[in-house]
Write a protein that binds this DNA or RNA. Structure first.
Lengths: 219, 219
DNA sequence: TTATGTGAAGGCCTTCACAGCG
DNA sequence: CGCTGTGAAGGCCTTCACATAA
């Protein structure tokens, strides 16, 4: 269930503020969802609430963590150590949530040996060995679009069954492999679509106008 | 419609390979969706196909671009020039798709003046001025979680009505403002959830095991 | 009395299957 | 004859509303 991480984060926030008990109404509000939906979601995990009272924050947190599988560590390899790969490697939110960035890999031999986020960047040739030795189960693809399919194929062949793809490419994997996609320009395009319908494109610019404004402001 | 960018990308790929005409079946395959779904989606834009033949690639590409609003440029501000902000600023996929990164803003005075991706980083105090002067309509938030709500409030107050939030925080905005969220650790958690169910956690590690392996391989 | 857990209703999106057009 | 465009069926997810338990 894709909303569990959301609830978990809301619960963590409550726990940090010392809240011990929370109602479905309150928790739903801080997660930004409907309270009935939240109750139905939680009911699939079991009856962890108390009628007339609510949910115990710490207990529920633990149950959700266990359900998601965060009571174990997962080893992750990041493939492609460009700007985005750097950002991902340095992103603090992973380690604190049960994900261990175990290896960084790049196809550029000049990058191999470079240290990023306390790890040595390895050359792409070593990908299969690293996956096996470090028992990596999750691959993060931050390569250019043209390399994405090949990288995914190699990850799958080496035994990885979960991939998070940041490359702006449509990648096919065999059944049984989970592939999630994060596409930055798609997200912006969806925003632009709504934006256009909102204000009648009042804020849309021609390329020339935009360049002029940039010149004027940025010098 | 959230799938239009996907179709657009598939069509661009076909155009680059010199394909002039494509059937719903083929296009759906390269976009990774059902062909009936694709035809229904496209039918909302108008009757742009030819029965018995298919769709003209270039023509359809233009229609979708227009529908999304990519025939105009949109000015974007990135708030928070840490690792992720850097990566976003340098990401080539934006400019080529109608998005112009017009300003970079950071709360750290030491960062102000620094040049990133050919733009000077401005101090957060200037946010409102920049939005007005550059006619910015889209804000990208790449700040730490604790700053996200304040930044979004300021963006909205200054007239921004579309926000893409990368901060791992639940942010509330008033009606009429579009807020999309990209949450890296949520994505990994969803993968972990499926991973756990797939192989009976065979690849899950305790923190100790993971550390041992890392030691052995990375030295 | 209060707030959970859950049938039932409703709405949205996907998929089927084929009429109809080129 | 082939493939689009689309009514209709089906399934999934959300929301309502209340019986039920503390």
């Amino acid at each position: 269930m894709a909303r569990l991480p959301l609830y978990l984060r809301a619960l963590t926030g409550l726990a940090e503020r010392g809240v011990a008990t929370v109602s479905s109404e309150e928790l739903a509000a801080s997660a930004g969802v409907n309270s009935a939906k939240l109750r139905k979601d939680l009911s699939y995990l079991g009856s962890y609430g108390t009628r007339g009272v609510g949910y115990e924050v710490d207990f529920l947190r633990h149950q959700i963590s266990r359900e998601i599988g965060l009571t174990q560590d997962w080893s992750v390899v990041i493939v492609g150590i460009g700007n985005l790969g750097h950002a991902l490697a340095n992103y603090g939110g992973f380690a604190s949530r049960g994900f261990r960035i175990a290896a960084l890999v790049d196809a550029d031999p000049k990058r191999a040996g470079e240290e990023v986020a306390g790890l040595q960047v390895r050359h792409a040739d070593e990908l299969e060995d690293l996956i096996q030795q470090l028992r990596i189960s999750i691959g993060v693809v931050a390569t250019p679009a043209r390399a994405a399919q090949t990288v995914c194929d190699r990850l799958v062949a080496a035994g990885v069954t979960s991939i998070l793809n940041f490359a702006p490419a449509i990648v096919q994997v065999r059944d049984g492999v989970d592939l999630r996609k994060v596409d930055l320009s798609t997200e912006l395009q969806i925003l632009a679509y709504h934006e256009q319908r909102k204000n009648g494109a009042a804020l849309a610019l021609t390329a020339e106008q935009a360049a002029e404004l940039a010149e004027a402001v940025n010098g």
